[in-house]
């Protein structure tokens, strides 16, 4: 899920940037430093959207660098265990498939794919239901639930499942009320197929 949160960071600035443009320099350095980073606690920092306030700078002994505490607003992406989201399939193999939801990678093992979906190898490997109505292959859109996260210093990696009602490519389980989404996805699949 994306969040809009306020974070704080101590920015060190070289004296050469002091002067009229100090604030601009500080802000552009902040963006360069934090955008695209990832921490286990706050997730991926996607974009800085505003500055709340910049505190008083403190000169560091011996170096001349000044440390400014900066409070800034930003958009972050943080996946949670138990969260349900949509993702794009990036790779399919007999072990399962990988999908991406924004910056985060999610792996769905074949144990967590419904039993009626079979792996089909070939130049476009995919998982297909026995009646052929649903196909998960590269570039398909799937809905999945995150059941585990692994947090590195610089990356978050997720394990997902599509073994439940309302998950996966087909939104079919009950009385056909979900048909529009199902046809939408299958028609986009046809588009993909016509490219091949």
């Amino acid at each position: 899920m994306f969040f809009h949160i306020v974070l704080e960071r101590n920015m060190q600035l070289h004296p050469r940037y002091f002067g009229r443009n100090l604030r601009e320099n500080l802000v552009s350095k902040l963006m360069k430093d934090v955008e695209g980073t990832c921490s286990g606690r706050h997730g991926f920092v996607v974009a800085v959207t505003g500055i709340e306030n910049i505190g008083k700078g403190i000169i560091r002994d011996g170096t001349g660098f000044v440390t400014f505490p900066v409070k800034y607003q930003c958009v972050v992406f943080r996946p949670f265990k138990g969260e349900i989201l949509e993702a794009v399939v990036t790779m399919v193999n007999k072990m399962g498939f990988f999908a991406e939801a924004g910056p985060v990678q999610i792996f769905v093992s074949n144990h967590l794919i419904p039993d009626d979906m079979e792996f089909q190898s070939g130049d476009m490997p995919n998982y297909t239901t026995s009646d052929g109505s649903v196909k998960i292959q590269k570039d398909s859109e799937v809905r999945l639930k995150i059941i585990g996260t692994r947090v590195d210093a610089t990356e978050i990696f997720c394990i997902g499942t599509i073994k439940d009602d309302f998950f996966g490519c087909d939104q079919r389980p009950y009385n056909g009320l979900n048909a529009p989404l199902c046809t939408l996805i299958s028609s986009s699949l046809h588009v993909i197929e016509s490219y091949i």
């Binding site: 695209g36 980073t37 990832c38 920092v45 974009a47 958009v75 991406e100 924004g102 910056p103």
Partner: peptide, 8 residues
Amino acid sequence: VSQVFEKS
């Protein structure tokens, strides 16, 4: 722009 921004 960062890869994170682009992918998001």
